[in-house]
Every structure is written in C-alpha cells, then in structure tokens.
Design a protein around this nucleic acid. Structure first.
Lengths: 110, 110
DNA sequence: ATGTCATATCATAAAAATATAAATTGAAAA
DNA sequence: TTTTCAATTTATATTTTTATGATATGACAT
C-alpha cells in the first residue's frame, strides 16, 4: 500500500487513534487572529512588536495566541538581543493554509 | 502569477480578507468527534444511526455536530426513505484530512 | 388514526476560548 | 544600579463550545 498520500481508507483507519492530536493542532489554526498572525509569518519570521503592528492584535492577546501556537508546535521562536523572533515551525501549517487559500481565495466563492 | 498553489505571498495578501470564513471552516473540523465522523464519511456516505454506532457519539450530540458541519458546508445530506444520509460536501475537507494524516499518521511523530 | 422509529431541537450546565487591564519578568542601555 | 523596553503572565469577565436529558417532529407502517 502506498503511504505518501492519504486515501479515504487510510483516513478512516489511521487517523481515528490520533483525532485528539489532530483536532488540537487544527484548533491552533482555527482562529481569525491566529490565521492573521500565520499569514504574516508565512512571509518570513517576525518579532512580536512587528506582529502586533501588522495584525492589530493587542499585546497581551498576541502573547496568548503565540503561546497557544507554540504549545501546538505550529510556531517556534528564537531570542535576538531583547526581542523574540517567531517563525512557522510546522510544515503542515503552510499546507493547510494553502488549502484554505485555494478554497477561499483562488476561486470566487461566498 | 500562477494561481494553482499558494505561495507565502498569496497567503499573506489574499487570505487576510477571508480569515473569518477560513477560521470558521477550520473550526468545523477542529473537534475530535467531528474528525471521527468525517473519517467515517471519508469511506462513503452514512446515515445518522450508522454514524452513531461507528463513532460512539451520542445521538443528540451527533445531531449538533452534523448540524455544525452542515452550517459550514463541510457535509450535506439527502433524505432516503426515513433516514438521512450524510456525505462530505467539501473537497477541502479531504485535502485537510490528508494533511493531518501525513502529519500525524504517515510519520511516527509524538 | 395510532404507533414506531429516525432524527432533530430545546434547555441547561459545564468547560474551553478570548479579550482586556494590571502587574511582572528580564535583558540591555544609561 | 536604575531605567527602559519587549514581551509575558495574571486575573477576570464574556463568549463560545460541548455534552446531556427531555421533548418534539415527521415519515412510514399498522
């Protein structure tokens, strides 16, 4: 059996034991502000101040969102002098955003 | 510019106006029971009783989950005699589940 | 018309997610 | 060592999500 792509058979047999992890990961992305943050990070790494400016999300809220994204392994950060630089750490993130783009942006759909 | 796949440029420019819709769609999938339901539906259409048996989700809860999935356009149903047959209505759903499979099942990752 | 069965809806309670304001940390400049 | 600044943490209120039990709907068989 091929294992590179997911068929409906694999989805229904292999995914169920992992639905908790998978849904936790999806929950990490399933918020407008976090998607906005990830759109910014998709262009390249950003420090927190920049993310706050670019997205308009309030500082405390930003910290909480970044913390949640970090907990789920979606992003990671590095310390540069006294700023924290965040970046997308998980390849699945970009893949899922690509599906969203295809669905909501590439075609003109309500 | 190519439009078939999403680059980081497209993600950061095209997705932001649609983050509310995109995150609503993701929220539809971001629950263990709903993922379980979708895994069953990935094998083929199912009536509600079958879904209840296969997933172990309680009837009232099942109705609410199906209702939410329907609201987001993830699934749709058809009436057969006196049972309702649900099926996956959105192609993006399978694509996202395939990404989850790749990430959580194809590789052995914690 | 009555009963049965599949499914949905309602009402409610408990848990999780989110935003905001205030206080804290901690690295670096002065 | 005091100040400053970036970012986080804490506390709290609001909203959203979810599960459960009870009730309702609606198609079909009797």
């Amino acid at each position: 059996m091929e294992c590179k792509d997911a068929t409906s058979v694999e989805l229904s047999h292999a995914l169920p034991p992992r639905v908790d992890d998978a849904s936790a990961f999806l929950k990490g992305l399933a918020n407008p502000h976090r998607l906005l943050i990830l759109c910014a990070l998709a262009q390249g790494e950003r420090n927190v101040s920049t993310l706050i400016t670019e997205t308009g999300v309030a500082p405390a809220s930003m910290s909480q969102h970044l913390s949640k994204l970090k907990d789920e392994g979606v992003v990671d950060f590095r310390r540069d002098h006294r700023t924290l630089t965040y970046f997308i750490a998980h390849p699945a993130t970009i893949q899922i955003m690509a599906v969203l783009y295809d669905h909501f942006c590439a075609r003109d759909e309500a």
